[in-house]
Amino acid sequence: MSSDDSSSALLLSRQLKDLQKNPVDGFSAGLVDDNIYQWEIMVIGSPETLYEGGFFRAVMDFPTTYPIMPPTLKFTTAMYHPNVYPDGTVCISILHPPGDDKYGYEQANERWSPVHTVETILLSVISMLSSPNDESPANIEAAKEYREDYPLFKKKVRRIVRDSADM
């Protein structure tokens, strides 16, 4: 294990202990197979949002270069949202690599920064669920329905919420 690996593992261990000691409403986290670089996340749908009552599993994979580079977050429970790719991968600015956006959509200060923690990432995901960004969608169909046929979008979200609660 290189010194970068050991310092990222130490930081992740500390962040996990902090979350276990001081849980945050809306999500829980634990390791997948005792692997400090892979966490299982449970996001609980926030009250007064379309996702209320849902239990959404996800996996967060950290690079050994964390916190210099961001983790990836992918829902393993079905998710229907403009900012979640059909395969479950979450697309939010703070999970994009640091620096300038080659497409000019995001400013560097909106993208990944080593000051982010697992807690700030998951709070951003919870915020994303209640306030989709349909200007830069990962799921074009969901964004189009969100804008043009909100009742249909709402019906699809309600179905995944119901299904998630049955798992």
Results as ranks from 00 to 15, higher is better:
residue 59 V to H: 11
residue 8 S to E: 06
residue 51 Y to M: 15
residue 140 I to N: 03
residue 25 D to G: 01
residue 90 V to S: 05
residue 17 K to Q: 07
residue 45 G to R: 02
residue 36 I to W: 06
residue 28 S to P: 10
residue 155 K to F: 11
residue 16 L to R: 04
residue 133 N to E: 14
residue 139 N to M: 09
residue 10 L to R: 13
residue 74 K to L: 06
residue 21 K to N: 05
residue 135 E to G: 08
residue 22 N to V: 01
residue 18 D to S: 08
residue 12 L to Y: 06
residue 94 I to W: 11
residue 113 S to P: 08
residue 55 F to I: 14
residue 127 S to N: 14
residue 117 T to F: 03
residue 21 K to A: 04
residue 130 S to A: 12
residue 111 R to C: 02
residue 139 N to E: 07
residue 164 S to D: 12
residue 45 G to A: 03
residue 11 L to A: 04
residue 99 G to H: 14
residue 103 Y to G: 10
residue 105 Y to H: 06
residue 56 F to L: 14
residue 36 I to Q: 05
residue 25 D to R: 08
residue 86 P to V: 13
residue 16 L to P: 07
residue 93 S to A: 14
residue 38 Q to H: 10
residue 166 D to R: 13
residue 65 T to V: 08
residue 13 S to H: 09
residue 45 G to K: 05
residue 149 D to N: 13
residue 49 T to Y: 07
residue 94 I to Q: 08
residue 156 K to A: 06
residue 137 P to I: 08
residue 51 Y to F: 15
residue 148 E to W: 07
residue 108 A to H: 03
residue 112 W to S: 10
residue 131 S to H: 13
residue 35 N to G: 03
residue 167 M to K: 05
residue 148 E to I: 04
residue 156 K to P: 01
residue 26 G to D: 01
residue 86 P to Q: 13
residue 49 T to C: 04
residue 111 R to N: 00
residue 1 M to E: 11
residue 154 K to N: 14
residue 137 P to F: 03
residue 147 R to T: 07
residue 145 E to G: 00
residue 13 S to Q: 13
residue 39 W to D: 10
residue 71 P to A: 02
residue 151 P to K: 02
residue 9 A to W: 11
residue 156 K to N: 09
residue 87 D to F: 03
residue 29 A to C: 07
residue 159 R to D: 12
residue 136 S to R: 04
residue 27 F to Y: 14
residue 80 Y to K: 02
residue 101 D to F: 13
residue 93 S to G: 11
residue 33 D to Q: 13
residue 164 S to L: 10
residue 9 A to T: 12
residue 31 L to Y: 00
residue 65 T to K: 15
residue 132 P to A: 06
residue 32 V to H: 08
residue 47 P to A: 12
residue 27 F to D: 02
residue 163 D to E: 15
residue 39 W to R: 09
residue 58 A to W: 09
residue 18 D to L: 04
residue 67 P to F: 14
residue 118 V to S: 03
residue 3 S to G: 02
residue 20 Q to D: 11
residue 122 L to I: 09
residue 11 L to Q: 09
residue 56 F to S: 13
residue 91 C to R: 01
residue 106 E to A: 12
residue 36 I to D: 00
residue 110 E to N: 12
residue 158 R to Y: 12
residue 37 Y to F: 15
residue 32 V to S: 06
residue 55 F to C: 12
